[in-house]
Amino acid sequence: MIEAIPTQFIIIFVGLLAVMAFVGLNAIVLVYLERKVAGFIHRRPGPYEVGPPCFPHGILQPFADGLKLVGKQLFTPRGADSILFWLAPMISIAPAIVCFIVIPFGPHLQIVNTNVGLVLILAFTGINVLALCLAGWASQNKYGLIGAARDISQGVAYEIPLLLVVLSVVFMTGTFNLFDIADGQGAWPWQWYIFYQPLAFIIFFICALAETNRNPFDLPEAESELTAGFHTEYSGMGFACFFLAEYAYMVVASCIIAILFLGGFQGPVLPGGWWFLAKVYVLLLIMIWIRWTFPRVRFDQLLNICWKWLIPLAVLNLLITLAVIAI
């Protein structure tokens, strides 16, 4: 019983605070990055003027947005289930923060090194689906309801290839420990698992896009179809929480991809933490780039992609991996 308690309880607590700060900071950086990248793609500067001259190029823009959202009126729509309505954003953001405590940011930068890190992340990211459903259901809005229904189908469908792909990597390494997985890969790109499992990487990337509701798979909040989908009725902080959660899950997904396929903190010359950050941000940039390039897929196409392409491919990938390992 005594041993059963994680011995680094205090570390976890402090780590959680650090993670929260990290998530907040990341969201701010990402919002800025996203708007700036979008701007450049559109041949315009994006946020530019906001802030005093010592902060050029609108660096303070995300802060202004954040503070503004804090200052907005909170609105519970009539007929909504107010408890669940406000519970949903919290359920959405909380697991994202938990996920960060097992991610090895560097050789010595990990809050908890556990043998089940990967399972923990998979388990906790699944909760997001539930939060979005609750949000859509509790707001008593038909658009929200449709958004929630879409989110369930999408989330349930894309979890399967995701798990299969993760399994094929786990069979290669023989562990769920994220640190060991990252550590098992070498410093050079040809030693990374992306080199051994390119198909798995692509499938995982597509699934990650779908799980984080990013364009072209942003159907639960499809702007032109469902106004704002499941968060149609959320104002102020509720909306900000979903926003934050979306970006946090994006970072989690990028981290997992970086660890599973891109060698995590491994890299030549530079210390590990920087490599990890660089890889994660490159992946995030690609996600942003994709978002501002493609149209949205249709709902049945989304499910078709999953059931007809990704799952068979993932199973195939798994079988090949098993065969290679067995030989």
Binding site: A4, N115, V116, V119, L120, L122, G126, I152, V156, E159
Partner: peptide, 19 residues
Amino acid sequence: AAPFIALMQILIYVGAVSV
């Protein structure tokens, strides 16, 4: 001291069954 089962509980029950 069965974290794996605990996480499976969350993964299966919360992530799949309750959804």
